[in-house]
Every structure is written in structure tokens, then in C-alpha cells.
Write a protein that binds this DNA or RNA. Structure first.
Lengths: 232, 232
DNA sequence: ACAAAAGTGTTCAATTTACACCCATGG
DNA sequence: CCATGGGTGTAAATTGAACACTTTTGT
């Protein structure tokens, strides 16, 4: 019995980091400097190291490749991607992670070579290296579902935000429009979702909006179900 | 640079196979014949082989260890479990899969040694080897959610079933009781969920129930949200 | 004064829930 | 003829969507 009883595989992590920027859903991508898929956009990620679990690898890669401290970023595992031919370099199984970030001042604004950048999701989809389009699709679906059941919309927002900004997250991630009046009431009626800071912020025009910060709740009950409509 | 840039890990699959039996949610377990955790119940599973993807490994292990043909069983990936100390034999990352089965005539009724058996979930939880309790918890939560959004309740049922049997699936998996009258209407109002066979089946007592088989639909719209109540 | 965004009150329709009541069978 | 589970009808309660209207600012 010379043949091994188990396959020799390498484990990697790939990160789907989403934000809302310029009224669009945007994705953190690097441009590949090596073959395969040289020059193509790809998800940040890399191989698992010794004595490191997957989450730690994800946090490390995020810091190395993008300069984003994984500190406050909530990472959620999306799943394992293991199609035998997904990577021409060999048998590599990758575990996808989703992270949601506020609109940050452009990741590594000129730090190291590879330079991660935000890219509009609608323009980059279909062009990603490896099976990264599939990972992104699954992660996006997860992000959309999370808006329904959790308070994760505030993860897209800065420390303090207006009701309009929060609503925009829902509108952009779901690709629909919501009634601002009903939205506001619904959110405020959900115990622990957001808390008023007491301050207001002047807008470009119009009445200044009250400012809020995230509350202690993490799960939404009842959920905010998105209306079913076709989008992208 | 003698040190490797990546960890040496082995990949495995673990299967959470659920059914409803004797009015209880039951789990397919094997009793471990070797160390570690010898004598303890565990999930069926095993190592990934060369030129085999995770799903294929799950189907193969299911057939080998339990005699269940993976044919019609729908396998859903739950996630990767990778805590470094989860398996004392070394660095083993396992991918969990969920399968839902009808009440089968006891898996390997005396075929090979290890013999998988059904075990009541409430008695076996907390006693499983490795981190299998955690995998089961995640899979169970997934199964409960699937009942809300998909027609997967019929996966728990035989080819033909009564409305009462289908309702029992919901009641047992969710751990609540449902109004039979409203339940029936709700299911029948969902296009493509189930189709009447035209036959009826005499009960132990009471009016014979109409028989149904599963319809073409797979996703439920609108979903059947479970009422929030505390359970087990 | 006007445009624009925030926010309140109210109405109406849709959905959910509860439950009275009838049906069909075995003992 | 009664217990038991299957099934229909209907009214009350809850929820959701629509929208008129008021508030508060910058220009």
C-alpha cells in the first residue's frame, strides 16, 4: 500500500471585504503580480501557517495585504472552496471569510507594492481570478441576509451615523429603495439596534439629522425582511 | 529559509445526518473503535482522498460507514472546523456537512463492524468526540433555518406523506407546536411545495389523511418563519 | 421664499392568529 | 356514539405599505 490514505492539500484563506463607497457596494481587491492570473484582480488572502487557525490567518493577511487592522472587523466564515482544478498550482482548498467595513480612507494608500484598492463590485464581478467570483457571490448573499437578521448594517457605518446613512446601507446592499419614514420607525422600534448620541449633524441641505451609534443588540427580532425583487 | 511558508494539515469531512424518528430528532453516530475518544459516539466522517472533492468524500464516507447511498441525500456544507487542538492526532481541519434523511430502516443493520446507529439528539449532545458537538449545533441551526426558507422538510419525509407528518417535522425540529389547521392552509397556499397524490391513508384513529408528495419548488416565498420561543 | 432632507400621524390593506365548527373513521 | 385526527370558515388582532403633512436647515 504505497498510496497515501489522504490527499496532500494546502489550506488558504480568501477575504471578501465589503464597504459602501460613493453610493456603491465596493470590494477590496489586489491585483495579482504573479502567475497564474497575473494582472487580474483577486481577493486578498494567503496560505495558512503553522500553529495558526483560519481566523488568525485571515486577520494576518488582511493586515499584511491591506493595512486594515482586523481589530474591530467582524470576520464570518463563508465556506470551504475545494474544486480540484480551482488553482492551477496544485491542490489548494480555500476558506472564504466575509468582513464588512466602513468607508475607510483607502486601504494601503501607497504602503507596500501589491496595494489593495476598493473596486466597484458591479465592474469587478466576473473578472476576478480563480473561483473568486463564486466566493464573492456567496459572501454577498450572506451579507444581504445578515442585514435582515442582525444589526450588521452598522458595521458598514462610521462610529456615529445618521438614519439616512444607515438606510443607504440597506438600499445599496439590497439594491432597492426604502421609505425613509417607515424605515426610521422600524429601526427605532427595534430595542438596542441604535442609540441616539443627542447630537445632530448639518446636511448639505435640509434639516440636520440626529446622530446615532450602534446599540448592544446583535440579532434583529423580528427580522427586517427585504422585499423580493429582482436585482443585478 | 528552512521553515515552510504553509502549515501541513490534513483535510477531513464530518457528516451530520439528521432524521425524525420516534417523535424525536435523531442523529447518525458511530461509536469510536480507536483512540482518541475510544468508545465515545462521534460523527461519521473521514479523510479526503486524492482527486476527490469534499462533497465526494462526504458521499463516500456516508456509504462506507453507514450504508446510506448518498444518491438522493442533499448535502449542505456547514463550514470548516480548524481549532488547532481539535484533534490530538495532529493538525486536522474538518469540513462539516449536513444531510437530512427520512426515517430509514436503521442504517447498517449489522453490515460491517463500526455500525452506525441513530441516537436521540437530546441524549447524545454534549457527549460527542472531538468538537463534534459544536458541528452538530451549527448544523442543527442550519436545518432549522432551512425549514423556514426551503422545502427541505420533505427531505425528512418518505416518498409520500400526510400533512400531519409534515407538520410533525416542523414541530419536532423547531421544538414547538403548530396549529394543524393553519399549517395545512399555509403549506397548500405555497405554490409547488407539495402535490396531492389523490390517495388517502387510514390512521390508527380518525379521518384518513390525504397523501402528498413533494412538489417542484425548493425555496419558500414567503418564508415560514418560526415563532420565537425558548427551547432546549 | 424655496428646495431639500428629517421626522410624525394616520389610513388602509394584507397577513397572521385564534378558534368555532364540520368530516370521516375505528373501537 | 364517542374519541380522535383531518379539514373549512371566519372574525379579531397584528403588521406593513402608502402618503399627507410638519419641522428645520442652507441658499
Amino acid at each position: 500500500m504505497e498510496s497515501r490514505d489522504h490527499a496532500e492539500v494546502r489550506l488558504a484563506v480568501d477575504l471578501v471585504v465589503l464597504t459602501v463607497r460613493e453610493d456603491r457596494l465596493q470590494l477590496l481587491v489586489i491585483v495579482r503580480g504573479n502567475q497564474p492570473y497575473r494582472g487580474r484582480p483577486a481577493l486578498p488572502g494567503g496560505f495558512l501557517r503553522e500553529n495558526e487557525d483560519l481566523r488568525a490567518a485571515a486577520v494576518r493577511e488582511l493586515a499584511e495585504e491591506t493595512g486594515l487592522a482586523g481589530r474591530s472587523l467582524v470576520l464570518e466564515q463563508i465556506g470551504a472552496y475545494d474544486a480540484p482544478e480551482r488553482d492551477p498550482r496544485g491542490r489548494i482548498v480555500s476558506v472564504g471569510y466575509l468582513a464588512v467595513a466602513p468607508d475607510l480612507p483607502v486601504p494601503t494608500a501607497g504602503s507596500d507594492a501589491t496595494g489593495a484598492t476598493w473596486a466597484r463590485l458591479d465592474t469587478v464581478r466576473g473578472a476576478l481570478a480563480f473561483d473568486h467570483d463564486e466566493i464573492v457571490s456567496d459572501a454577498l448573499e450572506r451579507a444581504r441576509t445578515r442585514l435582515e437578521y442582525t444589526t450588521s448594517a452598522t458595521d458598514f457605518c462610521a462610529e456615529v451615523f445618521t438614519m439616512g446613512e444607515l438606510r443607504q446601507i440597506y438600499e445599496i446592499v439590497w439594491g432597492i429603495t426604502l421609505d425613509p419614514r417607515n424605515f426610521s420607525r422600524r429601526i427605532l422600534a427595534t430595542e438596542g439596534f441604535i442609540e441616539p448620541t443627542g447630537d445632530r449633524r448639518a446636511q448639505v441641505t435640509g434639516r440636520p439629522a440626529a446622530l446615532y451609534r450602534r446599540g448592544p443588540a446583535s440579532r434583529l427580532n423580528p427580522p427586517m425582511l427585504r422585499p423580493q425583487q429582482g436585482e443585478q
